[in-house]
Amino acid sequence: MEPISILAPEHQAGEYINCKGYFSIVLQALVDHKVRFTNINMGWQGKVHDACIFRNSGLFQKLQEGTLFPDQKIIVGDVEMPICILGDPAYPLMPWLMKPYTGSLDSSQELFNYRLSKCRMVVECSFGCLKACWRSLLTPLDISESNIPTVITACCVLHNTCESKG
């Protein structure tokens, strides 16, 4: 999850204030290994928890039903594994979602968290590239709130096009 800063004058300020104390609308995204957005969920108020947004998304529904990656497996070494997505600690642990261990950890759990964190860096890179290319996303958007999801979606599509073309 990555918040995009906005101004929302027609709503109560509290609805859109995120945990960092500024106005935002949430862009929650699934990215692939090539730094491209494969699924986005746009428009929730900044104060809404990531796990709540995720559980109410079409992506969650498809993953729960097993229709997003039906019968797809990958081979790691000589082990066949189902496809899964990687999340941060805010997300629920699911058969198709890996997240880091929390609390007091032994050395194998710390190693797992380290490796998972390295794999998740592609997500941070995706959002970093999106904001670097479309620098207007770094400041409050001076547009109608109703247009924000369309603008952010367009930026994600253009980002994917740029990434695909090199």
Rank of each mutant, 00 (worst) to 15 (best):
Q109G: 01
W134V: 02
F112E: 04
T139M: 07
C129V: 15
E124T: 02
S107D: 11
M98C: 10
S107H: 07
E124N: 01
G103N: 07
G128I: 00
S108H: 14
L141S: 02
G103C: 06
L141E: 00
W134N: 01
L138I: 08
S104W: 05
C133W: 14
M94P: 00
L97R: 08
K99W: 09
M121W: 06
C125W: 13
L105Q: 06
E124H: 04
R120Q: 00
P92D: 05
L93K: 09
L93P: 00
A132K: 12
C129K: 14
C125V: 15
L116E: 04
Y91S: 08
S107N: 13
V122C: 10
L105C: 06
C129D: 03
S108Q: 14
L116Q: 10
Y101S: 03
K99F: 09
F127W: 12
A90K: 06
S107P: 00
L137F: 10
Y114S: 13
F112T: 03
A90N: 11
M94E: 15
L93M: 04
E124K: 08
R115E: 11
Y101K: 07
L141I: 01
M121A: 12
W96S: 03
L111H: 12
D106R: 09
L116R: 08
C133N: 13
F127R: 07
P140M: 08
L93V: 03
G103E: 11
W134I: 02
S108C: 07
F127A: 11
W96T: 06
K131T: 09
C129E: 03
C119G: 10
W96L: 04
S136P: 02
L141F: 00
P140F: 07
L97C: 14
L97Q: 02
L105E: 11
V122S: 08
R120A: 00
M94S: 07
C129M: 14
A132W: 00
V123S: 07
R120N: 05
T102A: 11
S108M: 14
L137M: 10
Y101L: 09
A132V: 04
V123T: 06
S136T: 12
C133K: 15
